[in-house]
Simulated scan of single mutants.
Amino acid sequence: MQFQWDAGNIAKLEKVRNSGRNITVDEIESVFVDPDRLTETAIPDDKTGEKRYKATGLSNQNRVISVIFVIRNGEIRIFNVWKTKQTTLKKYHAQTTDTRGEEAIRSETDPDGQRD
């Protein structure tokens, strides 16, 4: 899986980091290897018509994050990322199963009580 990182989306990630979200490139990329990752089609871009997607998955920092991305020239290009809010977190956990086929229980909370 190849990722497209350039000055544009690195600058955006720096703004995300400065806003207190403290999410790294490595953590973002790790979401895409979560076998239980939830991927949904988001609203297409008005200017380009590109389909944007939202992936929600467990990162290598053991927190569930959501990532907005497109597939451009066979590579994943990241647009935005945040710690997953309660509505999507519940959806993610509802479809996530452990090795015994039971619903997985992962401790993830949203201290602000915000919704996606």
Rank of each mutant, 00 (worst) to 15 (best):
M1D: 07
F3V: 08
Q4I: 12
Q4V: 06
W5I: 01
D6W: 12
D6N: 15
D6P: 02
D6R: 08
D6T: 11
A7V: 15
G8M: 06
G8C: 10
I10L: 15
I10N: 06
A11M: 12
K12W: 10
K12T: 07
L13S: 13
L13N: 12
K15H: 06
K15T: 12
R17L: 06
N18H: 11
S19N: 14
S19F: 05
G20N: 09
N22C: 11
N22H: 09
N22K: 13
I23V: 14
T24M: 11
T24V: 13
V25R: 09
E27Q: 05
I28T: 01
E29C: 08
V31Q: 10
F32C: 04
V33T: 12
D34N: 07
D34Y: 07
P35H: 07
R37W: 01
R37L: 04
R37C: 15
E40T: 10
I43K: 14
P44F: 09
D46G: 09
K47Y: 09
K47E: 15
T48I: 07
T48K: 07
G49Y: 07
G49L: 07
K51T: 15
R52P: 11
Y53D: 02
Y53E: 07
K54R: 13
K54N: 08
A55C: 11
A55H: 01
A55D: 00
T56C: 02
G57H: 01
G57Q: 05
S59N: 03
N60C: 10
N60V: 02
Q61H: 14
R63K: 14
R63A: 03
S66P: 01
S66L: 05
I68S: 02
I68M: 12
I68K: 02
F69V: 04
V70E: 08
V70F: 09
V70Q: 00
V70C: 13
I71C: 10
I71L: 02
R72L: 12
R72K: 14
G74K: 03
E75P: 01
I76V: 14
I76Y: 04
R77G: 03
I78A: 03
F79V: 15
N80L: 02
V81M: 04
V81G: 01
V81T: 11
W82R: 04
T84R: 00
T84A: 11
K85M: 05
K85Y: 05
Q86E: 08
L89C: 03
K91T: 08
H93F: 15
A94G: 06
A94L: 11
A94K: 09
Q95L: 13
T96S: 01
T96I: 04
T96A: 06
T97H: 11
T97W: 02
T97M: 13
D98C: 08
D98T: 05
D98Q: 09
R100S: 07
R100V: 13
E102S: 05
E103P: 07
A104N: 06
R106H: 04
S107D: 14
S107P: 02
T109A: 06
D110F: 02
D110G: 00
P111L: 12
P111K: 04
G113M: 05
Q114V: 08
Q114P: 00
R115L: 14
D116L: 01
D116E: 14
